[in-house]
Design a binder for these strands. Sequence first.
DNA 1: GCAAAATGATAGTAACACTATTACATTTGC
DNA 2: GCAAATGTAATAGTGTTACTATCATTTTGC
Lengths: 228, 228
Amino acid sequence: MLEIQSDIASKINVKVYKKNPLTSTLGKRILSGTIYLMSEIGFEDFTFKKLSDAINSTEATIYRYFENKHNLLTYLTMWYWSWLQHKCFLKTINIKSPQKRLENVIVAITEPVTLDNQFDYIDEVRLNQIVITESTKVYRCKKVDKDNKDGFFLSYKELVEAAAEIVLEIDAKYAFPHMLVSTVIEGAHHQRFFAEHLPRLTNINKEGDSISEFFIQLVKNELKINIS
Amino acid sequence: MLEIQSDIASKINVKVYKKNPLTSTLGKRILSGTIYLMSEIGFEDFTFKKLSDAINSTEATIYRYFENKHNLLTYLTMWYWSWLQHKCFLKTINIKSPQKRLENVIVAITEPVTLDNQFDYIDEVRLNQIVITESTKVYRCKKVDKDNKDGFFLSYKELVEAAAEIVLEIDAKYAFPHMLVSTVIEGAHHQRFFAEHLPRLTNINKEGDSISEFFIQLVKNELKINIS
DNA sequence: GCAAAATGATAGTAACACTATTACATTTGC
DNA sequence: GCAAATGTAATAGTGTTACTATCATTTTGC
């Protein structure tokens, strides 16, 4: 259990925080408080003042952990990618068929998230909502090249790389493995967001999870895998 | 020519502005100035003060046209969708084959934008960059439901609807037409952004435009259209 | 039990979003 | 051609936010 925690945490780039939030109970309260508050009021309205009030601390203290709210969001997003990477790992280990492994990975990254209960300071369901609504703001900004140089997006890249490698196992000549995988990941977020707020941009199916269904079908057709 | 201009402008919801920027030269200067400045410094650093300095006006004057920078970005995004809708219309009119029409639409929405020169106050290339980098911020926020009620996303929905209808012409039983189209639109933006800033998340091909190529292939495989 | 580190309390600065007011210039209706 | 309407500019001001600095107090490691 502890290994998993340090495994996920170790993938988080040290430059994203000023002081590692996992080294203190206050740090963990910052994380859980942020996840709750930001999922409630959104990134734009979220401030360190509101957060410090919510967790009974002070603004200045939070600035000791994170330079600004952008990096705090980046931290949470990195954590999410590492967690997802681990989830994909568990869902593919000991499976021989690359087709089946890829399907499991696609389900893992497109299915609705449920509570994990392994990390008491992380509410995965709310974190998933934050990632769906806010995560593009982490990289779709002028800071992206600097943050990329600092290695902030490594866990995301590793996740895409791992899935792309399975794609290449299925078809070594396939030209767009990374493109396909990142389209599925980002697309799944978009579709979940549209389903909730802009339903005319998507197709919702009351029974079953049409989002996972759609992306599995899309990838299978693209790679000409027989639909089971 | 003028008809096209009013056609595109008429699709822009009146609630998004306080005073129609197309009714004065200053209004048009606001639009062109915003497109230049925002594509240079990004949405976060963009302020009405900087804009007014750039176009030799004052902050207060700009507030007479737009309530805030969020609505100004929304205006530009709406304009972009209307323009793209018009482009798709021109590229599909008088073509019988729905397969060919769909292919043209996908090219239109995924290809790199070139200068149109029909609108002297709009630099389509820079506007496209803004849409790629910033447009998700228009709807991925807490205001989304209110703005949606006010009809801000109608031109986007119409674009998706028009393309989805072609998909249904090809396969009336296809279950996810809107999902497929909105995945292509958003996906194309993501891939262009990744290609420039996070190349490890995509696959770039020096010759040719692999992004259009990828999405055409994806849709054809999904709808089981024979690759030409 | 003491030194070092973490936290809290408080204050302050600069920038920004946004509003209000007034004055003056330009256009338009008739 | 003149009054009314509209457009533009200049200025000031408010409240909020991002962020820093300082110092007192508490907690922790050894």
